[in-house]
Design a protein around this nucleic acid. Structure first.
Lengths: 240, 240
DNA sequence: GGATCGTCTTGACATGGATCAAGGCAGCGC
DNA sequence: GCGCTGCCTTGATCCATGTCAAGACGATCC
């Protein structure tokens, strides 16, 4: 990721949509002011790589808007998406200058970046940021291990339902939980397949099957309506 | 895990076998002395649970000797081992009082424990311990995500070879890399299967197949001789 | 030694999901 | 409109791995 040029865009942090969930969430006024000073925004168009495995990565960042994926690929081209990154999620690793994953912008992406070295210095003297970072790391670790259960033990159907429920949870929810809910899938069939350890055909077939059973409606391939959330969730009664 | 009673055993840290790899690895003399003061050992016999998912866990610990597993189980009994914990590995999560996983002692286990609250206070004022903890968390995260590639993309054969190579890497290695190496598998076939997202029969069959092909020898089911490390590693040329 | 138990191996068969192949559909440029 | 392109769906078939079942092996106890 080139960081030579900051974007014109420069919101004041207090208007930031991820203010209360990102790395800055727990910061007091003074830490917050420091972050505000050293941050810079970066826009990345859909489809473009944010960073590649093995590459130097001299920034850390929060996602302000858009969706990105973390992935790994075998020598012969099999790919596993190891994480779906949504607004407020954290990118990069303090204390490490190379990137372990391919990071790709799935949609247009706005990142709130910090150069890595100053950020590393900052966490030494900013306890709230440091605690938040540690918490983020452990949360991600729990999520990754939970995904291992999905990859290792669940059926294709359960994987799809889990994915739908995950997107549902991370969507901005309407108050009325029992009404039909509409969600927009952030990933293509191909990316979904890779995230779930399936093929694109299996994803498609299982979606169709859920549709035929009335558990979901497909307004388009990417727009799903869930008539009854609890009925879909009940599909996971044996899993999870 | 009951922590009401400390064990008699109380090594001085300077003789500790995991001194240079565990949470204390980077500590200076003063931090080290503090850790030495507040630590206590705990022995757990093979087969016993260290902690169960959802349980309160008011300690964090380093493994001094022995092998443990992290695992999750579905409602209907499918189990995924999400981590194999070897000496120097860290158990527990500062800032969280309940346990996300089942933690089981595979062999007899010696843990170097710290009560969670004092440990949380300590990391606020002990920068080396704090940095080490953050590094451990990110290392575990990278490892978990790497394992997702294994679970989602690799064949049974590749999974087995990856597992053998993992055990080999974490074993105390002889200097002479090109000589036949003997490794003792820390996990039973059942645990291995669960770790790799396979069944016990598939594990057994793939091991036999590797044996028939001369890539490994099985002195017993748990003791493996690798006549030529590089030839085994070459089996992963397309994976990883 | 023989009985018992847990663990591992092997064989026969079943099946969920992969692979291969064809076609549908929406968006876009001309 | 028409053709092109990318993405998605569906069908037919295959195969890697799971399932079920039997027996081998080694440790332990008597």
């Amino acid at each position: 990721m080139k960081i030579s040029r900051t974007e014109d865009l420069r919101l004041d942090c207090q208007y930031c949509p991820v203010r209360h969930r990102a790395i800055c969430a727990a910061s007091d006024d003074s830490e917050f002011a420091t972050l505000n000073d050293i941050k810079f925004y970066k826009s990345i168009p859909a489809g473009q790589a944010v960073a590649r495995r093995g590459e130097r990565l001299n920034v850390v960042a929060s996602i302000v808007s858009g969706v990105a994926t973390l992935s790994k690929t075998t020598v012969d081209g099999r790919m596993q998406i190891t994480g779906m990154l949504l607004p407020s999620d954290f990118i990069g690793r303090p204390g490490r200058d190379t990137c372990e994953h391919d990071i790709s912008a799935v949609t247009d992406l706005t990142l709130c970046c910090f150069r890595r070295r100053p950020f590393e210095d900052l966490i030494e003297c900013a306890p709230a940021i440091r605690r938040r970072l540690l918490d983020i790391a452990f949360d991600e670790l729990d999520a990754a291990r939970h995904w291992m259960l999905l990859l290792g033990c669940l059926t294709a159907r359960e994987k799809i339902v889990s994915f739908l429920m995950l997107v549902l949870r991370r969507s901005t929810l309407p108050e009325d939980v029992d009404q039909p809910v509409q969600i927009d899938l952030p990933l293509s069939r191909e990316a979904t397949a890779s995230y779930l350890g399936l093929t694109i055909e299996t994803v498609s077939r299982q979606m169709s099957r859920l549709r035929k059973e009335g558990l979901i409606e497909l307004e388009t391939a990417r727009r799903v309506i869930i008539p009854d959330t609890s009925r879909l969730e009940a599909e996971l009664e044996n899993a999870d």
